[in-house]
């Protein structure tokens, strides 16, 4: 069996207060907890763009720094952990964060915030889905400040809504009402994913998905998520 954390961050690309854990600490924590791999979901979007530490930077520079953080984690992880590129995205049209999987460096480097920031949320999601093989899950859907997404498919268009919810967030378990997220995902028949949301030193790694086969690439990850051929890891079980 293989275990993958689908929600982890490092301090190499962040916004004020979001994460302070180094790539090295992240790798050690995940190896000790028996993980086979991580999807690095550093923040991307208006929470980053409006942060003081990024003031004056061009989108290109921001994109390069974002990718650089991913490459650093990969380098630190070496052959001990698979590291895939994802993001925890924020947009003005919907409060909260969204976990993006299937991300490529090209998407980040070519990201045009003037277009994304001006879109209605459903158009933003459609745009994401149309830009490549990308899946979108709402992070901590029942945390304070998270918007309630229409999962009923009123638009009857699969591209226009998100692919699922984060049904278990380990580090925020006491404030994000995980069982509600799980019940909501089950009721509407959308996918559920899990992650540690490991962001700071001293936090415990937990959560993620458990698969029968190894995930070595974005393609593998997307295949697993779309087929829902995984189980949710809650807590710190190995």
């Amino acid at each position: 069996m293989y275990k993958y954390d689908l929600h982890a961050l490092t301090s190499d690309f962040t916004y004020s207060g979001r994460s302070s854990i180094s790539a090295e600490e992240t790798v050690v924590a995940h190896i000790e907890a028996g993980y086979s791999g991580i999807v690095l979901t550093n923040p991307w979007g208006n929470k980053v763009f409006s942060d003081e530490q990024h003031a004056g930077k061009s989108m290109r520079t921001l994109g390069e720094e974002f990718i650089s953080a991913y490459e650093k984690l990969r380098s630190v992880a070496g052959n001990d952990l698979v590291v895939l590129l994802g993001a925890e995205m924020s947009v003005p049209s919907a409060s909260g964060e969204f976990l993006i999987y299937g991300l490529t460096p090209k998407f980040i480097l070519e990201y045009d915030r003037t277009i994304s920031d001006a879109m209605w949320f459903t158009d933003f999601i459609t745009n994401l889905h149309s830009s490549g093989d990308i899946l979108v899950y709402q992070a901590v859907p029942f945390a304070n400040g998270s918007v309630i997404i229409d999962l009923n498919g009123k638009d009857k268009h699969p591209l226009r809504t998100i692919d699922g919810l984060e049904v278990y967030n380990h580090c925020k378990a006491d404030v994000c009402s995980n069982p509600f997220a799980q019940a909501r995902a089950e009721y509407y028949g959308v996918g559920g994913i899990s992650g540690s949301d490991l962001s700071h030193s001293g936090e415990n790694v937990g959560g993620g998905i458990i698969t029968k086969s190894p995930i070595l690439s974005n393609d593998d990850l997307l295949t697993v998520l779309k087929s829902r051929d995984y189980s949710i890891c809650k807590g710190e079980e190995v």
């Binding site: 029942f142 304070n144 400040g145 998270s146 309630i148 229409d150 009923n152």
Partner: peptide, 11 residues
């Protein structure tokens, strides 16, 4: 409080 489009308020 859980109508689509609304935001979860702190409990």
């Amino acid at each position: 409080p859980f109508r689509d489009g609304l935001t979860i308020l702190p409990t």
